[in-house]
Computed example of a mutant assay.
Amino acid sequence: MQKEVFSKQLDLSALLHDVSNAFEGASLIVNQIIDGAYGRSLEEIRPFLIALLQTNKRGVDLIESRRVYEELGVVSVTEFDVLDILQKNYSQFKPIAQYYSLNLHYQTQVSYKHGTQVRGDSISIDRMLCNIITNAIKYTLTGDIFVRLLNQGDDLIIEIEDTGIGIAAEQLSNIFIPFWRAPQSRVSDKPGRGIGLYIASMVAYAHGLTMRVDSVVTQGTKFTIIFPYKDGEMYGVDGRMLPKSPKQVGSRRSFV
């Protein structure tokens, strides 16, 4: 019973964490528009108004998804284009990165061997990516953040790389533990709850993805998310969500 209660509390904390992040991002963009940081004319601020709308919608979608799950006990599995999700992420986070004097880069290929369609819970995939990008912004004091979509062989790969404070090798095994924060995270003046990467790892479990983390202290961190290719099938889950378990691989942490 205690484990069940803790699980529900953790689930609620995760939801509040992501909804809070979405609306904090929206507030930041609104304040910058009011201050004229993005320009004064409608033409100048239109991209940022779109980013504001998308960021606000993300928070609403998270709440609605939770409501549907509570009422029906199901997770929506659909087919979607992960390229579209990454493009929206870039639009939403570019003004936030700009606010912190960071450069956010979005890099794609001209074409993809097996396309970019994925089967899964698009809201959860978006949560995973938003939490990793949020952390990249939070723990990069100066420099760049890169979001990439590419092929490695037949697999579809998302990379999120930053030039931030990095994570010590001996701490990599802890970063997905809920509410754990690395000692060096205190150098950032941005608040953190230590739950974003836990959420990202749970999404990876459920979709059968592999998540790898490479990091060097003071040089930065790279998250690599692998959508494995299945002969004749779409990337992602096969019609249903399945819980997965983590396993350690060398100095990296992988989820399969």
Rank of each mutant, 00 (worst) to 15 (best):
Q87H: 04
S101N: 13
L86K: 00
N103M: 01
I63Q: 05
E71R: 05
R66A: 12
L42A: 14
A26K: 08
L62E: 00
F93S: 02
R58K: 13
Q98Y: 12
N31H: 14
T116A: 01
L129Y: 00
I45C: 11
L52I: 11
L129K: 00
S111K: 08
G39M: 12
I34H: 12
V30L: 15
L53M: 14
V110W: 04
A51G: 12
N56V: 15
S124F: 05
G115F: 06
Q32A: 08
T116E: 01
A51P: 07
K113D: 06
L86E: 00
A37H: 10
S41H: 11
I33A: 04
R46G: 13
D35V: 06
N103K: 04
K57E: 15
P47H: 08
D84S: 14
T108K: 07
S65H: 12
S91K: 09
S91P: 01
Q54L: 15
G73M: 05
V82M: 03
V77S: 07
V77Q: 07
E71Y: 02
R119F: 08
S122D: 07
E44V: 08
G73T: 07
Y106T: 02
L102S: 01
G120K: 02
I125F: 11
R66P: 01
E44R: 12
Y100C: 07
E79I: 11
S27A: 15
E43M: 10
Y90K: 00
A51E: 09
Y38L: 09
G36H: 02
K57A: 15
I85Q: 01
L28S: 06
D126N: 11
D35M: 11
Q87G: 03
S124A: 14
H114D: 03
Y112N: 06
L52Y: 07
Q109M: 09
L52E: 08
Y69V: 04
S122N: 07
Q107S: 12
F48C: 10
E43K: 10
L42N: 14
A97R: 06
G73V: 05
F80Q: 01
R66G: 05
T116M: 01
E79T: 15
N89A: 07
V30F: 10
V60A: 13
H114N: 09
I85L: 13
I85G: 01
L49R: 11
T55K: 10
M128R: 00
K113I: 06
A97L: 06
S76E: 14
S76Q: 09
E71F: 02
D126F: 03
Q32L: 08
E79K: 14
N31Y: 14
Y106A: 00
Q117Y: 10
S124P: 03
I33K: 04
S111G: 06
A26Q: 11
L104V: 02
G59E: 09
L86R: 00
Y112R: 04
S124M: 09
S101P: 02
V60R: 08
V77W: 02
D121Y: 03
Q32V: 04
V60P: 01
